[in-house]
Design a protein around this nucleic acid. Structure first.
Lengths: 143, 143
DNA sequence: ATGTATGCAAAACATTTGCACCTGG
DNA sequence: CCAGGTGCAAATGTTTTGCATACAT
């Protein structure tokens, strides 16, 4: 149950917070912008202000419950943090996001940071490309 | 000379464009936001509108003359593309940017993309951390 | 000349903030 | 009850756009 997760993070278990956390947990899309969350809640008939969404998402991020990504400059997207670190591959056609993890890359990143004397706190790796589905669609259009 | 570079890219060699390109070529900082460019030109006594800066930077990016980065969500920064691909390490304290290149990581990225059937068009890797200088400063403050 | 580029100001977004009211513990 | 949370609307910061004027070729 999410209300205990919230209290564990030192946050009061309010209605908006529970709704937002629940949404991020259940959503199959997995990567949602503040606007996405807002619209999803509206459609579900929930009354939440957009300001609250931003505030809550920021708090969740600080609490380590979710992770923020800046795939493009336009807007941030958030995803539930389920303990497993992974990187992202983003389809530039349809926006689909695929997650992956590569031990070799992780190791090299740490090695490079320490080589330059950096105290590494975080890293982000995005591979941009065209996903198999969009390649197929493109091939058919060409026929 | 930059005017020929511009024409090669299919862009008229106008004064603002030459100034902006020159600035990006010469600037030691190497990673500038639109606002940075704007202020630098004002200080140099040049009359350029901020809208032109944005338009020109976007055109330069499309033309492949410069590369755009979204280190954080706030604002984009641009750097001259001198043919050598590299990734970035960003100090979260002072904002300093260190460039690096790692063959192993590059290879793994391609391997992963093709493993998932993606046609990779681009990728971005940022390592965030605290640079040696800021670590030192922090240690002194603690004394 | 003439199509393109620029400057200005207004618009468009994404996100943040001040403040009065409401709510969870 | 009361500290903290929320909603609203206004403010912010960045980037984009409409339009009349200026410029490169």
């Amino acid at each position: 149950m999410s209300s205990s997760d919230l209290r564990k993070a030192g946050l009061k278990a309010t209605l908006p917070r529970m709704r937002i956390l629940q949404l991020l947990e259940e959503n199959s899309q997995r990567h949602m912008s503040a606007e996405d969350v807002y619209r999803a809640l509206l459609e579900a008939g929930e009354e939440v202000g957009i300001a609250t969404i931003y505030r809550v998402l920021t708090q969740f991020e600080s609490a380590g419950l979710i992770t923020r990504h800046n795939f493009d400059g336009g807007h941030a997207v958030y995803e539930i943090d389920q303990g497993d670190h992974h990187d992202h591959m983003v389809c530039t056609r349809c926006g689909k996001v695929t997650e992956f993890f590569d031990e070799t890359i992780e190791k090299r990143q740490h090695a490079i940071a320490s080589q330059y004397g950096y105290d590494m706190t975080d890293h982000s790796l995005y591979i941009f490309g065209i996903c198999p589905d969009c390649q197929k669609a493109q091939a058919e259009r060409r026929r």
